[in-house]
Computed example of a mutant assay.
Amino acid sequence: MPTFLETVHVLNGETLHLNYHQKRINDVFHYYFPDTPVLNIQDYFASLELPQSGSYRARLVYRTEWEFHEFIPYKSKNIKHLAIVNTDDFEYFFKYADRSHILKKVADHPEADDIIFSKHGKLQDSSIANLAFKKGDTWYTPKDPLHWGTTRRRLIDEQVLEEKDIWISELSEYSHICLINVFRPLSDTDALLLPNAIV
């Protein structure tokens, strides 16, 4: 049975967007543990002593119980260049704690700061984030990502992002790419220019 991971942004003692993390935990339990009471992430954080100053990455590892947690000071990874790699038969629908396959793919491409998985010609995710692509004034996100992230889901709910198949063959139609996760916002300032970002 796999082990699962939630990565939560803790900013100055506040946990951000826990309702979306809970939705993902609900999905995990519905699929893997349908007869087990669902873990409550809000209650778990209420039992912890949170760092009160600064930006932290809270790593929560769990199966049917909370198994491990740690607070890591957040340091942004400088990403300027991306390499496109084949997803092949790799599946990462849920946020599994075992990321060894992903890390190996990244290590195989030292020419890039991060990678983008693609399947049957359609772009999916980077190793650390979901993706958004800008065309005109509209931001699009791949309809079939490697996994759905909490920030991606929230931005779709807020109608900031639209789901669409992003084909490698049509990448020239987009002006920017933005990596989005709980630490990386969707904005022109944080986006990379296309096609310059692809190596």
Rank of each mutant, 00 (worst) to 15 (best):
P37Y: 08
K135C: 12
P73F: 04
S126W: 00
L146P: 03
L39K: 11
D137E: 12
N86D: 15
Y96N: 02
G121L: 04
D113F: 00
I128P: 05
F29T: 00
T64F: 10
K143V: 15
H109T: 13
D98Q: 03
S76V: 08
I72P: 08
P110Y: 06
V61F: 15
D98S: 05
F71W: 01
E70L: 08
I72M: 08
S76G: 10
L131K: 03
R63E: 15
N130P: 11
F71N: 00
Y140T: 08
D125P: 06
L146F: 03
V106Y: 12
T36Y: 10
A129N: 10
I79A: 00
F93M: 13
R57G: 06
I41D: 04
S118L: 11
S100E: 11
V38H: 05
Y32W: 09
I115D: 03
V38D: 01
S100K: 11
H81R: 07
D137H: 13
W148R: 14
D89I: 08
E49C: 06
H81N: 07
H109F: 13
F90G: 00
P51Y: 01
Y96P: 07
H81Y: 10
E65D: 15
G136R: 09
L103Q: 14
D89P: 03
K77I: 08
D108Q: 13
F133Y: 06
S47T: 04
F94K: 01
A129V: 12
T138C: 12
D144I: 15
T64C: 12
R99Q: 10
D108W: 11
Y74W: 02
F45G: 03
I84V: 02
I41K: 01
L60A: 00
L48F: 01
N86P: 12
I116M: 05
H147R: 15
F33C: 07
V38I: 09
S53N: 14
Y140W: 09
